[in-house]
Amino acid sequence: MSERNGTETLLRLDHVTVRFGETVALDDVSLSLRRGETCVIQGAAGSGKTTLMKTALGLIKPDEGHVYLFGVDTLTARETELNELRSHMGILFQEGGLFDSMTIEENVGYPLVNMKSLKCPPGEVLARVQQALDFVELGHTLEKVPSELSGGMRRRVGIARAVVTRPSLLLYDSPTAGLDPITANTIMALIAKERDTRGTATALATHRYQDGFLLANYRYNAHTERLEDAGGKNLHTMFIVLGEGRIVFEGTQQELETSPDPYVSKFAKPLKE
């Protein structure tokens, strides 16, 4: 694994193409993400956001191009090596991906127990699970099973499971999809909180402009325990818009908002519509 310093590239997609039969899900996609950076990936349903996330995680092998996780090419890495790399990453799946036959405690503790490279002593698991659940304000749900929780709560448990290993790279796949605006804002606040308290690199796939806007313009203040306006600093946030598997836009929030492309502009100012 490459050295871990402030400018280290944690994730790099290099001309990645993914096909499912005749369908091209990702077409010549390149991007990179460094520590402390945020990448907001927007696009319509079926534009390739989820495929991009799964390819970045090494769950889908690209047909062309390369994916480098912490400097390691996932195409040539063995599954055991990928597992070691994944122990430095957290992922929130679109559907939550919680194991419905396990309690919340077992779900959140799952990576600590099963990722051997983390070397988490069994005696520490419960404390770290509790800490992660407290982070998402669900510390009282240890004994419950996912079906007893609401959709928003399940996403928050998914965030707890993603952050319990204290990863340096976090991928969120449509974390606010299908949620009411209040719950969606709570989820986004938690994502910003995790990013700003631990300085993690964050990739967020979403179809909501508001999600990217929040990450680009707000930061979590640990003293006041609230999100605050970052004063237009954009917090190293890059916006990408996917269309039919291709990157049709890449740039800052300002560039996104002034884009003349009719497809791109749909993801720029939905608040005014």
Partner: peptide
């Protein structure tokens, strides 16, 4: 488990 992404989650969390 497959359609609710639990299989993907399993792989992502270090389990075959």
């Amino acid at each position: 488990m497959k359609v609710t992404e639990q299989i993907d989650a399993m792989r992502a969390l270090g389990t075959d």
